[in-house]
């Protein structure tokens, strides 16, 4: 492996924590493998924003203007096109002989990475949670079977596209002076086909933290007995700055929106702290959260399977334990 290209994602021209994680990972790999590393980003962020990547070790950042890229489409209502991002990154990687492309495994990263791998003829290793350096190369650790096991995967020589599971490999400050170089959309290979499916609208519930991005999650299950009691979960989440999650049973019952569901058919999460309230711990639920760093279970049944994966737990009634926790933490945070 000789040259590493990191794709740093922005939302409304601002880097998210995941972008710093993947830049840190690029720096780590480059140091381990003694290889070159650069960052590519597609947006209209100002230089100050871009330079923030320097704090995580990015010495060279290539910036392609999203406005200029979109202008190539001739489409009036375009916000962006995944296809154009994939083509821009692929042709830049090919033209400059990058053989490793790293992205964060956000919904955006997971959408464009298979296209990049196909366009560049690369192996793809999605959802990586660790790097395992060996014999001058590197293998990748990733979960499979919904987190019930881990696999060590190796690219068989040649090029590779890797996505990193968000919130697992933390961003590491590693100061470098970053030089920003603008690249023109004419220098990358873009065609009308790259806009044949395009995003015309993005709607995100504002102010609400999503389970997939949260560092702390408080989840509620059928033990809450009804949607009218979820304020107990929301209040604890509020004092912790956490996102609210849910089991499938309560989502199917219509108590909570599907976007909050954690598990095999919901979201896979790996926060630092996962608090499961009135959730039994069915295998499909565990599939989505068992890689959390710390798991707390609150359940009135001491034999509930959730206690088998819990680091801490209280056997008790959520209607008493949750308000007490909210109060206790409020006190602590002053």
């Amino acid at each position: 492996m000789s040259k590493i290209l990191v794709f740093a994602e922005t939302k409304d021209n601002v880097f998210k924590a995941n972008a710093f994680e993947v830049v840190s990972a690029g720096k780590f790999l480059a140091d381990k493998l003694g290889s070159e590393f650069a960052v590519i980003t597609i947006n209209d962020a100002g230089d100050e924003q871009i330079k923030a990547l320097g704090k995580y070790g990015a010495a060279k950042v290539y910036q392609l203007s999203l406005n200029e890229l979109n202008a190539k489409s001739g489409i009036a209502d375009i916000k962006y096109s995944h296809g154009a991002f994939a083509s821009a990154v692929s042709s830049f990687a090919d033209a400059n002989a990058y053989d490793v492309v790293l992205l964060s495994g956000t919904s955006f990263g997971r959408e464009i990475s298979p296209s990049i791998a196909a366009k560049t003829g690369s192996a793809i290793v999605p959802d990586v949670i660790d790097f395992i350096p060996e014999d001058g190369g590197v293998s990748f650790k990733r979960p499979a079977y919904a987190g019930k096991c881990y696999t060590k995967v190796k690219a068989n020589g040649g090029k590779v596209v890797v996505t990193l599971r968000p919130n697992v490999l933390k961003a590491v400050e590693n100061s470098a002076d970053s030089a920003v170089e603008k690249i023109s959309p004419d220098s990358v290979n873009i065609s009308a086909n790259d806009f044949s499916a395009y995003v015309s609208e993005v709607s995100v519930a504002s102010g609400k933290l999503d389970v997939a991005e949260a560092d702390i999650i408080v989840s509620g299950g059928r033990g809450l007995r009804g949607p009218e009691n979820f304020h107990l979960v929301e209040e604890l989440a509020g004092v912790l700055g956490a996102a609210v999650g849910a089991s499938r049973a309560v989502v199917d019952a219509g108590w909570r929106p599907h976007g909050e569901q954690v598990g095999q058919t919901g979201k896979t999460v790996s926060p630092s702290l996962y608090v499961a309230c009135g959730i039994s711990g069915a295998i499909q639920h565990l599939a989505g959260m068992s890689s959390s760093k710390y798991i707390v279970a609150i359940n009135k049944d001491k034999d509930a399977p959730i206690f088998q994966v819990a680091d801490y737990g209280i056997v008790g009634d959520v209607f008493e334990v949750l308000p007490a926790m909210t109060e206790e933490i409020k006190k602590l945070k002053g």
Binding site: K79, T106, A197, V199, V204, A205, L209, D210, G259
Partner: peptide, 11 residues
């Protein structure tokens, strides 16, 4: 579906 919301696409 994306984190916390959705994208609408045309194709």
């Amino acid at each position: 579906e994306i984190e916390g919301g959705k994208e609408t696409l045309k194709a």
